[in-house]
Nucleic acid binder design. Structure first.
Length: 202
DNA sequence: AACATGATCAACT
DNA sequence: GTTGATCATGTTT
């Protein structure tokens, strides 16, 4: 029941190449503090969206109302709605104005699992945080969380000393533009990664 | 018209 | 068990 302990990476962590940040976020813990306690998940799958040469990035057309958080400084939260239904959570990287971010695609549920089950409307832990839309929903993110910092008391990244292993690089999922870039990172051994088929038992 | 998705269901191996 | 079609639904180009 005790909270996970560790260090909260500072701003510098996010002021690096987006692909490096995306890779280094694998194995870190993402946490959100709610009235009911912490909701935490270990990140097992990410995708990098770059400033230059990446036509799939929301920032590619330039600043808009929707993508404005993406142009904030590294360590900012960017939440967007996709297909009119789902929310996706991103961590902004680089200097203010660079327009790059890391999409959180999947996590392993750690804390607040009963809360996640309510948020998601399913009891199957295997798929609670599988996929970007499911991940955001399990955490209970909303568009109001845009612009929040990942160093805050409410939402933060935690390095609890876990070292990820067997990280694979691959093309990103669900995009048609710039599909040749290998900017997806995931932990091969994790059953919580999206885009794979697993038996639905529990 | 396309979109950084997910749930469901039919049909198949 | 796995694959593929379909749909839900709002915002941006």
């Amino acid at each position: 029941m005790s909270e996970i302990s560790g260090k909260i990476p500072g701003k510098d962590f996010y002021l690096r190449d987006t692909s490096e940040v995306a890779r280094d976020l694998i194995g870190k813990v993402l946490s959100r503090r709610t009235r009911d306690g912490l909701i935490s998940g270990r990140i097992v799958e990410t995708e990098a969206y770059l400033q230059e040469g990446d036509t799939a990035s929301h920032s590619y057309p330039g600043l808009t109302k929707r993508n404005a958080p993406m142009f904030e400084e590294g360590g900012t939260l960017y939440i967007y709605k996709i297909y009119g239904i789902h929310l996706c959570a991103n961590i902004v990287t680089g200097k203010k104005g660079s327009g790059s971010a890391v999409l959180i695609r999947a996590c392993e549920p750690l804390e607040g699992i009963s809360r996640m089950k309510i948020n998601r409307g399913t009891a199957n832990e295997r798929i609670l945080m599988k996929g970007p839309g499911n991940c955001a929903k399990a955490f209970g993110f909303s568009l109001n969380d845009n612009f929040k910092k990942l160093f805050s008391d409410e939402i933060f990244i935690l390095d609890d000393g876990y070292s990820a292993y067997g990280i694979i690089e691959s093309p990103r999922i669900g995009i048609s533009k710039s599909a040749e870039l290998n900017l997806r990172y995931f932990m091969k051994a994790s059953p919580f990664v999206s885009g794979k088929k697993f038996s639905i038992r529990n």
